[in-house]
Nucleic acid binder design. Structure first.
Lengths: 103, 103
DNA sequence: TGACAATATCGATATAATGCGATATTTAGA
DNA sequence: TCTAAATATCGCATTATATCGATATTGTCA
């Protein structure tokens, strides 16, 4: 766990917002029509719809998602021409735990 | 609670370290000889000893402590020519709570 | 294979954070 | 009131982050 990287991610409000939206993808994003059956319901959302919702450029969103992935706050899966990201609850839980106990 | 400011503070390892040291001041710092009786045991540590322990310059330490105070992760009290800082457990608790519940 | 859609990467520039040395401020005490 | 100690602030150079537009890459399908 790279706490530094995690806190850097969290020090930007748009990134925190994305993390929040991904908590309830169904309520914040349209259905992922191209996602195969066996991956649905796992919280995966493709880059494009995140991009549209944020209002910032595609390149910046892509960069953000990559930062969040490197901090292991998100994981991703490429399927066809889409890259789907979802929350990594494990890391989020551990971060809260770290603050509660080790800070 | 300005979460942005809090996470910015936490994204620097020296500042996190300071926060940690202040968790157990007795084990990490010498006794505060000039601190009046009624303030002892409250976790107050003066800037000078924090400065010595970090190994970075006095001006940088002072700046860091101020950032941490503005984020309400620390509070401080000036007594005589010394400024004593201590943890603000309330904010730290709320930060953990925020991550657990709102992130 | 050629065109297109989705995403990632590159290069550039503006803004912010890091961390220093020098100086100012505040307070205590002779 | 002069001096010294503790801390805060200022100005600066360096490095990191934010964010964009342009381009490259990857994958789909006619």
């Amino acid at each position: 766990m790279n706490m530094d990287a995690i806190f850097k991610v969290l020090s930007n409000p748009v990134r925190v917002q994305i993390l929040n939206w991904l908590k309830n993808p169904e309520t914040h994003f349209p259905p992922m029509l191209h996602l195969p059956e066996e991956e649905s319901g796992k919280g995966y959302v493709c880059v494009g719809v995140i991009h549209e919702k944020t209002g910032i450029t595609q390149s910046t969103v892509s960069h953000y998602l990559n930062l969040m992935k490197q901090a292991e706050l998100l994981s991703c899966k490429r399927i066809g021409q889409w890259t789907y990201y979802r929350r990594n609850e494990e890391t989020i839980k551990k971060t809260a735990y770290y603050i509660s106990n080790s800070l």
